[in-house]
C-alpha cells in the first residue's frame, strides 16, 4: 500500500480553481519531484496534503489515516509530515538548536536532554553543528534552509514536503541545500519536492510530476519525462526550464 494517497483534490480561491482534481500516490522511500509553471497549484497541493490549506474537496491518506477526515487529530498527522518552506520560516527568536529542539519537546514531549542530543545529531547531519547557538538572522539563506531541514528531520517524519526549497536562495547557496536533499533521497527518505532544479530531478527523482492549470498533465520516471514525454507540452516545459536553470547542478 502506498504511504501517501491523494485523491481528487480540489481547491478554489474565490473564482479561481487552483487545484482541479489531483490524484497521486507515493510509496515509502520514493522521491517525487513536482514541476510546472508558477501559479499552477504546486504549492497549494503540498499545503493541502497536511491541511495548512484546507482542500475544498478530495481526500488524503497517510498510510491508513485519512488526513482530510474531520475526526483526525491534524496535529498528530502534521508531526509525521515534515514541511520545508521556500522562505525557511525558522523561528526568528530561537537559536538553530532551539528551532530544531522545539518540536521535539513541545509536540513529541521529549525531555530536554534527549531533545538536545537528537537536535544536535540532526544539525550535524546538515553540517551545521557549529552553528547550533546562532540565531536565524546570523545565518546565510542556505544555512537557514539546512536548519529548517534539520528541524523537519528531527521529528522522524514519514514524509517530507519541500515547497521550492531553493527558490529564495542566491545561486551560490543552492548547492549546499541540494546536496543535503540528495543525501536524504539516497538515504531513503520519502520526499515530495516542488522545484525548478532539473539537475536534482534528473539525478534523484523516482518520478517527475508535471502540473499545469491545476491538474497533473503527465508523470513518469525522469528518463521517460526527459527523453520521450507523451504530452508535447511536457517536453516543451522541460526544455524551457532546463535552459533557464541549467542542468549543471
Amino acid at each position: 500500500m502506498a504511504l501517501l494517497r491523494v485523491e481528487n483534490l480540489h481547491k478554489r480561491y474565490g473564482h479561481e480553481e487552483v487545484l482541479k482534481g489531483v490524484t497521486l500516490a507515493q510509496d515509502a522511500g520514493e522521491t517525487k519531484v513536482v514541476i510546472g509553471p508558477s501559479g499552477t497549484g504546486k504549492s497549494t497541493l503540498l499545503r493541502c496534503i497536511n491541511r495548512l490549506t484546507e482542500p475544498d474537496q478530495g481526500r488524503v491518506w497517510l498510510e491508513d489515516t485519512e488526513i482530510t477526515s474531520r475526526r483526525t487529530d491534524i496535529n498528530r498527522v502534521r508531526a509525521k509530515i515534515g514541511f520545508v518552506f521556500q522562505d525557511f520560516n525558522l523561528f526568528t527568536h530561537l537559536t538553530s538548536l532551539d528551532n530544531v529542539r522545539l518540536g521535539l519537546m513541545k509536540v513529541r514531549g521529549m525531555p530536554r536532554a534527549a531533545a538536545t542530543g537528537r537536535a544536535m545529531a540532526e544539525l550535524e547531519r546538515v553540517g551545521l553543528a557549529a552553528k547550533a547557538n546562532a540565531y536565524p538572522a546570523q545565518l546565510s539563506g542556505g544555512q537557514q534552509q539546512r536548519v529548517s531541514i534539520a528541524r523537519a528531520l528531527a521529528m522522524d517524519p514519514k514524509l517530507i514536503l519541500f515547497d521550492e526549497p531553493t527558490s529564495a536562495l542566491d545561486p551560490e547557496l543552492i548547492g549546499e541545500v541540494l546536496s543535503v536533499m540528495i543525501q536524504l533521497a539516497r538515504d531513503g527518505m520519502t520526499m515530495i519536492v516542488v522545484t525548478h532544479e532539473m539537475g536534482f530531478a534528473r539525478s534523484v527523482a523516482d518520478e517527475i510530476v508535471f502540473m499545469e492549470g491545476g491538474v497533473i498533465v503527465e508523470q513518469g520516471t525522469p528518463d521517460k519525462m526527459f527523453r520521450s514525454p507523451e504530452v508535447p507540452r511536457t517536453g516543451e516545459f522541460l526544455r524551457k526550464i532546463s535552459d533557464l536553470y541549467g542542468e549543471s547542478r
Binding site: A79, F83, L90, H93, K106
Partner: peptide, 26 residues
C-alpha cells in the same frame, strides 16, 4: 510574520502552543 505560525503548525503544534511558544515571544 505569518510564516511563523505556519511553520509552528506544520510541526504539529496546536494553535495555542504556536501562540505561546512562537508568536508571543516575538
Amino acid at each position: 510574520k505569518s510564516g511563523q505560525m505556519m511553520a509552528a503548525r506544520a510541526l504539529g503544534m496546536s494553535r495555542a502552543q504556536a501562540i505561546g511558544h512562537v508568536i508571543m515571544p516575538q
